[in-house]
Design a protein around this nucleic acid. Sequence first.
DNA 1: CCGATATAGTTTGAATCGGAAACAATCCCG
DNA 2: CGGGATTGTTTCCGATTCAAACTATATCGG
Lengths: 388, 388
Amino acid sequence: MPDHDPTRAQTASSEVVRDINRRIVLNLVRKRHPISRADLARLSGLQRSTISLIIEQLIEENWVIEGPTGRLPRGRRPTFLRLNDERVIIGVDIRPTQTTVALADANGKFTSQEVIPTPGDPKTATDGLIEAIQRIIAGCRRKKIEGIGISLPGRFNQGAGRLVFAPNLNWREFDLATPIVKATGLEVELENAANACVLAAMWFDRMEECRNFVVVTVSEGIGTGILANGQLVRGLTGMAGEFGHVPLDHDGPECGCGSRGCWEVYASNRAALRYYFESGPAGDNLSFVDLLSRADHGDARAVKAVETMAHYLGRGMRMIVAGLAPERIIVVGDLTRAWHRFGPVIEAEVQDQVLPGGCAPRLVPAHEDGMARLRGTIALVLQKHFSV
Amino acid sequence: MPDHDPTRAQTASSEVVRDINRRIVLNLVRKRHPISRADLARLSGLQRSTISLIIEQLIEENWVIEGPTGRLPRGRRPTFLRLNDERVIIGVDIRPTQTTVALADANGKFTSQEVIPTPGDPKTATDGLIEAIQRIIAGCRRKKIEGIGISLPGRFNQGAGRLVFAPNLNWREFDLATPIVKATGLEVELENAANACVLAAMWFDRMEECRNFVVVTVSEGIGTGILANGQLVRGLTGMAGEFGHVPLDHDGPECGCGSRGCWEVYASNRAALRYYFESGPAGDNLSFVDLLSRADHGDARAVKAVETMAHYLGRGMRMIVAGLAPERIIVVGDLTRAWHRFGPVIEAEVQDQVLPGGCAPRLVPAHEDGMARLRGTIALVLQKHFSV
DNA sequence: CCGATATAGTTTGAATCGGAAACAATCCCG
DNA sequence: CGGGATTGTTTCCGATTCAAACTATATCGG
């Protein structure tokens, strides 16, 4: 007798059909609200009767609510539908120096926000984070909290929630999820910061028609998030996207990861500051944003440092262009504030090496950097219910 | 009125349910044949009644046939089912020097095969290929030919079937698919050679539980095929996987692609021969296989050349390991015949740079190289009907 | 004011499908 | 030759979508 295969293919039944269509309808409401049942039928291709049944179910489950009635040149007035903003999600963005905790509704609209410092010790950080989360929870009585999404500059075991690699955070292996689950009773989803940016772009930037793009986050280090065939590429251990730690020159300067000459050693914010310091005297405690403003005020050495960084950014992106042929590369980080300096240099470097028949990806700076990761954490929680 | 979105999400109905389950059952028959209806029910989790109905439909459609009855210690004898081998597929593997045309049944078993030279001119090559295909067609009367799958070392527009990049074939832009469709009336599917190897591994090497792996093909050049989340990554223009043309050293030797110092300049078969020639005198017309045998016969310079190639292979694979974190890397090419030389060197180079928390992929040499691509072309045609 | 027309949303009946359980067929063994 | 076990089929039910009829409600023209 053959063994009963636990990893058997997912068979389908009537309920699966409803689940698929329910998710499609729910997503349409999310993206096109306010919208009537009739429009949902037209957009989805489902019958009006089917839409009515699905909406009835979604209203019962408190996902959707009826709004005002619309006006038309003729005929019965449509009832507008929208997502119930009593369903909220807590988003957390952990960065090396500060952590943001925020509350958003299912539309991705933030209603409250708090910034706390990020201590160097993960235990202390977790305690402070839990307190901030509980302040947020206290602030939203009556609303239904769907879960907590957390973005951070590191990698961890999918499922377990144990941090395994966070060089720029300087945290050792640590279980971040369990204490928060215990303290709040809510579901917690962790995601790498670059991957969170991918989710944010997919969910809130009307990028659903673009199924192959890469997000490159540039700050202390360089992270990349990959969307291939409309799906986030996490790889076996959740470690996919570490292009920042591919060596461009094996004799180059040492990197925090233990290797030498990694891409991020040449093209991160830190790298630009290093170029600047190496080229002559500079004040203490200069930040990357300071460097950008010095470049804009005519400091030739600052301009040179920034352009060198841009040059290496483009050079590293060749890996991504050649290997993945994405439709777009979205650049996230403080450097987007000086895109007039970076854009042309990166673009030229990438264009230089497009293969015959290939086609250079559109290079897009992501503005409002801060929100990208945070909105990604909201998508992280929502996708369980919404993604088709 | 909102526009009717042509790219609307795929809604589901009862027929979709049947289609999904039909594909699951068809795949189980393919992978576990001979198999009884009762075992299919156990493996799939579907009811026996449902299996009976689906099998009835598959038998009517000539996909499945009943075979002999089995024996059990007790009870009614099961009727074994298997794929109908009257359904056949033509597979074509185009290589720089020779082209293989073969006929296989739905199980991937080849029943006839023919090897013809590959002319340098694409027009002549197509004519010769069509003749060979028609000889194969003539040889299989009564059988139903599902389509033609073609693997070649190059890239092309998905859909259109126009070659756009085939440096090692030295063919310019050329429409390969249309003449064959016109001559035979059969559907033609093109695929890059490395991607064909990915399909072969997925379909015929019991790799379906491994949803993230990369195939690296090493011959005149280096090609890579990427499977992420169980799906082939083709990228926007079908150009994904050209890691072979990422420069390791911008001042390195020129590459056929127009750039300098590409990975394949350092780690292809050609590269090993170059290392050998550069290190001293050598006979004319030495092939890579000759080089391997010289190494095995104690030629120290040959050993050195081979090890240098292996070293650079490993170095380039770091891009893949860091960027995609695959579970396995499957190596295809003549070098697998001397895996005792390559394996350890590549493995050491890759291990050297595994990030904390990461996990090095299993490095697997693919044997019977010739068949890998050819079997991939069969999968290429089958996946339309089989893939879930 | 009233009917024609148009649009939104609901109700109803048919068709498809999988699930559950009963049933029929077949085999081994004592 | 009957009991138990196993395979495969039949029958009925519930879930779902679809198609079309139906209801509700708006505008417009006379």
